[in-house]
């Protein structure tokens, strides 16, 4: 086995990640119990609270499986423990991969490729991935209390207004990201005659188009949970078949 992969899939790393996730799991249970007890204290119907818990739990199983597919997709280049950690907390598949790729190229690698990775590059990439996504957490630590108090006061005044630009800003940002990457795949094909990235992106996009058709036209909204992960796996399978 590749030395790098052996190191990033080692038992101590599993134990470190397991410890961090156990802490976060305990905190979730703590919040759950505290809120449930508070509900009982103010006379909320236990049945209603249990229904909310059960529906949220069942609602989360399918997305959980789709996140697991993301762990599989990431594990080939970053190992299982880091992929497990990153996709269990804070992040999401699209963030993790993109940031890992940016970090890898910033270090002078040609991309997130196992053949070029070393344990030193890995620890730096892992740190960039962690630090880069802490803005939401930082906002919560320093600003949530003030922001929500102010927001609740302003809420009544804002009724009837159209959606703010915030909702579109994230979409625009992602459109920019995707444009840069797709443009680079076209360039890789025309300049270096390497059509693999563009072909994979194309197959992945086609699969996504099928999902979008089923979700939007056939009202199969439950597929939404799987669309990105399955499209990626189909694209990656195409890469293997093209390279045979």
């Amino acid at each position: 086995m590749n030395e790098y992969l052996k190191q990033v899939n080692s038992l101590p790393f599993y134990l470190i990640v397991g410890g961090v996730l156990l802490f976060i799991l305990i905190m979730c249970v703590w919040f759950l119990v505290k809120s449930y007890r508070a509900g009982i204290a103010i006379g909320m119907d236990k049945k209603v609270m249990r229904r909310a818990i059960m529906s949220s739990a069942t609602f989360s199983i399918l997305p959980g499986v789709s996140i697991l597919l993301g762990v599989i997709a990431l594990s080939g280049s970053l190992g299982v423990p880091l992929s497990w950690l990153r996709l269990s907390v804070v992040g999401a598949l699209q963030y993790e991969l993109n940031v890992a790729e940016i970090a890898a190229t910033s270090m002078g690698l040609s991309g997130l490729k196992v053949s070029e990775m070393s344990i030193a590059a890995f620890t730096t990439i892992a740190l960039v991935m962690t630090a880069g996504i802490l803005s939401g957490i930082t906002c919560c630590i320093f600003g949530l209390k003030k922001y929500l108090t102010r927001f609740q006061k302003k809420e009544k005044k804002a009724e009837g207004n159209r959606p703010g630009f915030g909702a579109y800003a994230t979409i625009a940002m992602f459109i920019g990201l995707c444009s840069a990457y797709i443009g680079s795949y076209v360039g890789t094909w025309t300049a270096f005659k390497n059509h693999l990235p563009l072909m994979v992106a194309g197959v992945s996009a086609l699969t996504m188009a099928v999902f979008e058709y089923l979700i939007v036209k056939k009202k199969m909204e439950w597929l939404e949970n799987f669309s990105v992960a399955v499209s990626m796996i189909v694209g990656m399978t195409a890469a293997v078949l093209i390279s045979l």
Partner: peptide, 25 residues
């Protein structure tokens, strides 16, 4: 044999995401 799959994980992601987000606007 699976190396090309994991080496193209980023294009696979941006192909799928590209279609999803480009369609939005």
């Amino acid at each position: 044999v699976l190396t090309p799959a994991f080496d193209t994980v980023v294009p696979a992601l941006f192909g799928a995401l590209g279609l999803k987000y480009f369609r939005k606007s």
